[in-house]
Simulated assay, not measured.
Amino acid sequence: MTFYSTNPDDLLIDAARNGDVTYLKERIAEGADLSITNGRGFTPLIIASYDGHLDATKLLLEAGADPNTQDNSGNTALMGVSFKGYSEIAKLLIENGADLNLQNGSGGTALMFATLFGRNQMVKVLLDAGADTSIRDARGLTALDLAYQQGNEEAFNLFKEHHENA
């Protein structure tokens, strides 16, 4: 792996992006600040989880990284993995206190991201974890509305089943 910066914060961000658990462990042992951000407000946790690095995400959470930090657009690690469909990482984030119902700058939630991008396994994970289906985004739409608009029958049925069992 190639690093182009010698700035320790940049190196920490790069290690998270690359899932470099060895480097992350070294930096954590040295007392690295896990709340640092890059120019877009991404923390090492947001980056590691978004890039699908389960072990790096787990390490960062165990070291005290905040799963509810929001980037410059208001997105969280859980929103990112919901968009990408990384169910196992989502479960890990939720187990470590990720707020299912935080909203970004447009009012979007993790459940809305999963629904909008057809990540139906993720929709199920979030519904099973207790995501609030009544939250509306800046346009006044709920995740169920998004499922309907997308013609995502599977997600629509997941919402219906969730409401019947609630």
Rank of each mutant, 00 (worst) to 15 (best):
A114F: 01
V21T: 03
T57P: 10
K124D: 04
G97R: 11
L59M: 12
M122L: 12
Y4P: 05
D71P: 15
L34N: 00
E95H: 08
N38I: 14
A110L: 03
R136I: 04
P44Q: 06
A29Q: 13
A147G: 00
I36W: 15
G31R: 10
A63I: 10
H53Q: 06
L11R: 08
V123A: 00
D10L: 14
H163E: 12
A63P: 09
A32L: 14
L146P: 05
S134V: 00
D71I: 12
G19Y: 14
T43L: 04
A114S: 02
Q121V: 15
A77C: 11
A147F: 04
R17P: 09
D66P: 12
Q121R: 10
L92C: 09
S73C: 07
H163Y: 11
R17F: 15
R119M: 05
A166C: 14
L126Q: 03
G130K: 00
G130M: 05
T133H: 09
H162R: 03
T109S: 03
P8F: 10
L61D: 06
T142W: 10
S35V: 11
F3E: 09
K25I: 13
I47G: 07
E88G: 07
I89S: 00
S134Q: 14
P44M: 05
F3H: 11
G64V: 06
D132F: 02
T57I: 07
D132A: 04
I36R: 05
Y4A: 00
D137R: 11
